[in-house]
Write a protein that binds this DNA or RNA. Structure first.
Lengths: 168, 168
DNA sequence: TATTGTTATACTCTATAACTATA
DNA sequence: TATAGTTATAGAGTATAACAATA
């Protein structure tokens, strides 16, 4: 059945850093999403909650800028979080067009659990490495990320839309 | 305007291997796609061409199994490649339901160019690291990939559909 | 005239099922 | 009855434009 298929050299892809990063990155993102699912959160919601918690009261546009996403996308994300009772849109003190975004008490509790979940996940990812290798790997990845011009903590999977461009 | 936004601690995400892998992986995949675009190829086409070249004459189903994708997806990919004159569907010698897939002469030339392009890209990705760090990084990533159960050279971004499940 | 939030629409991707011709 | 290839349809996700309220 498979007798006439010659088994040639192993694919060289598995030896390329570019392929390994893409392969591992995709798989890691996928597994992290599964890891977070029991909390009812997707990675993008987790990331947004983290950013909101770093400075409550900001407008949706400010949050969108911080995450490098389009404000239209932010509306949908905020709807998700508000529907789940995790954030509140209050009136902005100085701009009546804008909303000031705050976390609810429930969100603070959930965020703490999500971070513990992320810690557990991190340990799983790094399981095969000893302490020295873990430190080294993270340092190497950070150097690559810096060289690639990636802003710390901003996931490019969220920043599809060109937030520079105006409506027009 | 932004005076009342306290700048708190930097996001801890940038120190997590899981986040860095996902962030770098996504960005790397995106940039590789741009790198390949001048050749008129997407990464998935490149990957498929590589697999076809490793053993010509296989059926679409065999190729789909090798890449862990659903045969329905394979039809679309093969259509793309055939429309571009890169592959041929010939009649299978032993099974008249199946097609035997072959590369054209044009595909061999394009594949060689694509691999050179991938080499250039690899050098760009690894630019900030010296030789020892490059070797170490690749070894570390390979260990993580193996621990995660990722088959060498198979990108999980392609294998969405559950190729185990039958039609029904 | 520009900006914030919102909504609507179109477009791309993926998943699923169903069909045909063979086995 | 099962399998290879194909096609069609529905759903999720993203991009773009347009609108009302406010600056």
């Amino acid at each position: 059945m498979a007798a006439d298929i010659p088994q040639l050299a192993p694919t060289p892809l598995a030896g390329r850093a570019g392929f390994l990063l893409s392969q591992l990155g995709f798989h890691t993102a996928q597994r992290f999403a599964e890891h977070l699912a029991p909390l009812g959160l997707q990675p993008k919601h987790f990331g947004l909650l983290m950013h909101v918690s770093r400075g409550e009261g900001r407008s949706q546009q400010q949050l969108a800028d911080a995450l490098a996403i389009h404000r239209n996308v932010m509306v949908g994300l905020m709807d998700d979080l508000e529907d789940r009772g995790l954030t509140e849109r209050r009136r902005h003190p100085s701009d009546r067009r804008a909303h000031a975004v705050y976390l609810t008490a429930a969100a603070h509790g959930l965020l703490a659990r999500a971070q513990r979940s992320a810690d557990t996940f991190e340990a799983e990812v790094l399981a095969p490495l000893d302490e020295a290798d873990r430190t080294h790997l993270i340092a190497l990845l950070q150097r690559l990320a810096e060289h690639a011009g990636l802003p710390a903590g901003i996931h490019p999977g969220l920043q599809r839309a060109d937030s520079q461009a105006a409506d027009r």
